[in-house]
Nucleic acid binder design. Sequence first.
DNA 1: CTATGCACCGATTGATAA
DNA 2: TTATCAATCGGTGCATAG
Length: 381
Amino acid sequence: MLKKRKKHSRPRPTDENVSEVDTKCSSGEAIDENTNGAEDSPETFDFECPPEKSIEQEKTVEEEEEVEQGVAATEWQMDTKASFCELCQKSFRNPSTLKVHMRCHTGEKPYSCKVCGKCFSFPGNLSKHEHIHQVGKNFTCQFCKKTFLLHKTLKKHERIHTGEKMYDCKFCSQQFLYLTSRNNHEQKHLEEQSEKGFVCVQCSKVCKTAAALVMHQKKHYFRGLKHRDGKDLQPSAAEICTWGGAASSICNDPKMTGERRSVSMPESFPPSFDDCEAPLLSYSSGVTEVIPQNVCTPSPVENVSTIGETDSSHFMTPPPLPPVALHSSVLMEVPKGWKHWKARHYNLEENLNSDHSSLKESTKTFTELKTMTSFDNPFVP
DNA sequence: CTATGCACCGATTGATAA
DNA sequence: TTATCAATCGGTGCATAG
Ligand SMILES: [Zn+2]
Ligand SMILES: [Zn+2]
Ligand SMILES: [Zn+2]
Ligand SMILES: [Zn+2]
């Protein structure tokens, strides 16, 4: 299996006094003292690459296939060769990785800063921490020459110059530079939605009840059918399989339910807009003129559970399957699938950083579709 | 207040040394 | 095969400006 080349394979400093497990950090720490600018340290300059392109997160082809095939991932986790954390249901290929991982459950922090005594679970974090005791800021912005203590900080700073806004609103096409800004914005959506009732994403019509909304949306739906005119708006079989497989695998995938904070998988998932977006994803790839409007419309969060139980048919379903049913099923129920869509959605987000071209492509289209569906969103400038 | 910006932390990953 | 480490991610908290 060819792995994607990593570019950051610099030869390790062999005999540095990098006292490994040693709880006290040796002062000569491996922490780059090649500080100012760190000439070859990939830490500092890899602006050739698109900022979001994390080489670190690239997955092996093998893993990609697992995701695509859906089932493989689950099987892999059960593989005895893999180390498995029962606490968070995560698997690791390297047993020692599991050991290290367990520290986040045990709270063990064997690495302590000898300057301030602060303890850390992971050696790398101690190294980073020790950096802050050094005088001088070591990372310089290539655009404004401002300096920063940490590489991560620099990278984030440079987004200001590059214009990269990595935080997308889940409900509209707006993007944000800061997570807090994004969250605030999304909160507004939620508040707005819950005040109004049930909003049609196509025309912004607000309905008092979900049932009314469904009736309303049927109009859009049939209108859409008229305009379709034989255009092939259907996803390819491959796409369907891919998505279907991904969904099924992910929802069973312990990896996806772990405590990995970066994924922000909520413990419980009151169906939210996320769930509504998933259907978009499912048939977005390669589709240029979809009826993305035929997505389930966000409902007030607090109402969702009720609807799911008693009025599930009011939700338009993400019809992952028969192409023929692609459009005709958009108004069908799906609540039992909430979880799956949710899971898939998060998986996509995670894979957005990977180099998986197909997932990426789909996600990209997803973003485009979000734009399409948000034309009438009051939050869109 | 809200948005912006920085300091810092927790955790994972892949390469590679042992 | 296992252990270690550099690299890098996502995230929180707080300060400050408008
Ligand atoms: Zn665990
Ligand atoms: Zn310290
Ligand atoms: Zn700058
Ligand atoms: Zn928005």
